[in-house]
Design a protein around this nucleic acid. Structure first.
Lengths: 140, 140
DNA sequence: AATAATACGCAACTCAATTGCGTTTGTCAA
DNA sequence: TTGACAAACGCAATTGAGTTGCGTATTATT
């Protein structure tokens, strides 16, 4: 289930602690439902009067990533971003001007394409990255 | 035209010098036709008995990029790679095991998809990134 | 309250990439 | 051929994202 307390409880059942950092990070990622980088998340914690070391942020992200609670998204600017997992599979429209992010759902087209490629090239596709860059309606 | 001397001449006509570094880098990128990172290119120059500082490699790549002679490709590992520009538009199959790269041509499917999205979302798409990750036929 | 595992802070470090600045080299024109 | 000047280069220092080691603190359990 996609809510902070449920996720925290699942982690707790596995022997991990319920910490304020964990709770706030999961909450923010659940709320914004968009890819955020380590810096943005550290800033968010600061705003919540919970200033933590960047190492803590990186470690927490690594922790959540390894447990499949978040996924890594790459915009091609050499900066890792993280998004809550479990959202419907989608891709992003990234505005080159305002850096805004919109989701886009590419129905079965991609799945069909992947299968075609896998067969043709004899390559087992495990994942793909697909992001679109341009100008959003406001920046046009 | 896609050959080293033509490109060098075009640059020369614009007032830039014909240097050995420039010539070798363009030649290698033209020959291999696959994305290479700065380290790989510096190593290549070394092999050609032309040991240069990494700054020179980075500056040359920046230079070629700004003039549209090469394009930047991102595999999501926070490392910039460069490929000669002017190749037919294609994407990459990246093997998670041997790091090998295969090209894949995704006919008009993507173009159609882009137009559909652009219209629906009122978003001007300038470019996209699409790479596939998995296991190649040898590593399967 | 004691214990143990998890979580955290801090400093140092890695790795890709960039910057400042002084020097060298390619090019062109006298 | 030789100046002269911009382009190109080397080197050291720096930036920025991310990681590591290690000692300390916190959470949960008994």
């Amino acid at each position: 289930m996609l809510n902070t307390q449920t996720i925290l409880q699942q982690l707790s059942d596995q022997g991990f602690k319920k910490t304020k950092v964990r709770e706030l990070l999961i909450g923010e990622l659940l709320k914004l439902k968009k890819p955020l980088d380590a810096q943005a998340l550290q800033d968010f914690l600061s705003d919540q009067k919970l200033a933590v070391n960047k190492t803590t942020v990186y470690r927490e992200l690594q922790f959540l990533l390894e447990r499949g609670i978040i996924v890594e998204i790459n915009f091609g600017d050499n900066k890792r971003r993280y998004e809550i997992a479990g959202l419907a599979h989608h891709h992003h429209l990234i505005c080159n001007n305002c850096q805004g992010v919109e989701d886009v759902f590419v129905d079965q087209d991609l799945v069909k394409l992947e299968k075609k490629i896998a067969k043709e090239k004899n390559f087992a596709i495990h994942s793909h990255s697909l992001e679109f860059f341009g100008l959003c309606r406001h920046c046009l």
